[in-house]
Computed example of a mutant assay.
Amino acid sequence: MPPAEPAATGPGSRPRNVVQLGAVRMVATSRLADDVAEQIRQLIITKDIAEGARLPSERHLAEMFGASRPIVSQALRSLSLMGLVEIKQGSGAYVMRRPESAIATSVNLMLDLDKQSLSHLVDLRLWLETLGATEGLRHAESNLADVRSALQRLKESMAGGTSAWIAADTLFHAAVVRTSGNPYLASIYEAIHTAIISYEYDDWVSSDRVPDWLLPSNADAQMAIHKPILDALAEGDEAATRDAIRHHHEVMLQHIARSRQPD
């Protein structure tokens, strides 16, 4: 892990315990936020930045990449969709975990070229999560500790804001699929999941406008579509597991439809 930045010494100085990312290339393309997000993702990998480490402030990241603070904010929101970064209001952005080797770039490109393929992608997400969960049920050594921990984090994240919830949601579903014990399945699933929620939450990423279903007043409704998945897995009930995942899928379809409605 790279060394921490020096302690703050006065006004305008960097806060304590912020990791240094080192040299970066200046961003000069039409998709600045995507480029910044990808550079930060790669730096988390190459610099071996630990979970829980705080990234430099948005201001310092903007200086490093030669981009505006709104572009950096958008990039960090994109990373939170992947469950890689958690944005804590008034504190900064923190690394939640190291990225998996993903095929997200090619999936996103395909979706960009053919928006009509979204329905196929959403179906594939359902099949992959169902497969991961049911395979997990068939492995006596499957451990649900990560799924339980992820659900608890999801429950607590509503108080932390939209970024915290979305990141925790990604971690929960990834943990469900990882019970299969197959890292390739988990990696493919995460790439598909990220592409879909990037589409679902495009308005939030680009404008920081929170969708109504993620308002604190809807926290119970959100938990009600996630907890049954863990309950069914814990009971070893394959039919109930399939039903719980299917119900979550149907609610996600509703959210996607609502996110595409004009203001």
Rank of each mutant, 00 (worst) to 15 (best):
M1N: 12
P3I: 11
A4C: 09
E5N: 15
P11R: 06
S13N: 05
S13I: 03
S13V: 04
L21A: 06
G22F: 06
S30G: 15
L32M: 10
L32D: 02
A33M: 02
I40H: 03
I40R: 01
A50E: 14
A50Y: 07
A53S: 15
R59L: 09
E63S: 13
A67T: 15
A67Q: 08
S68D: 13
R69P: 02
R69L: 03
S73Q: 15
Q74R: 15
A75C: 08
L79W: 00
L84R: 04
K88C: 02
K88T: 09
G92W: 03
Y94R: 03
M96S: 10
E100H: 09
S106V: 10
V107T: 05
N108K: 11
S119Q: 12
L121E: 02
L124C: 07
W127R: 15
E129Y: 02
T130P: 04
A133K: 10
E135Q: 14
E141M: 06
A145W: 01
A145R: 14
S149L: 09
A150R: 06
R153F: 07
L154N: 04
S163D: 11
A167S: 15
A167K: 00
D169Y: 11
F172N: 03
V177Y: 04
Y184T: 13
Y184G: 11
L185W: 04
I188M: 14
T194Q: 05
A195C: 06
Y199H: 12
E200T: 09
E200W: 02
D202M: 06
W204C: 01
S206E: 10
R209D: 08
W213A: 04
S217H: 05
A221E: 13
Q222T: 06
M223C: 06
D231Q: 13
L233F: 04
E235H: 14
G236W: 12
D237S: 08
A239R: 12
T241R: 00
A244Y: 03
A244E: 04
H247F: 10
H247P: 00
E250I: 10
V251N: 01
M252S: 14
Q254S: 10
I256M: 13
A257V: 07
S259L: 04
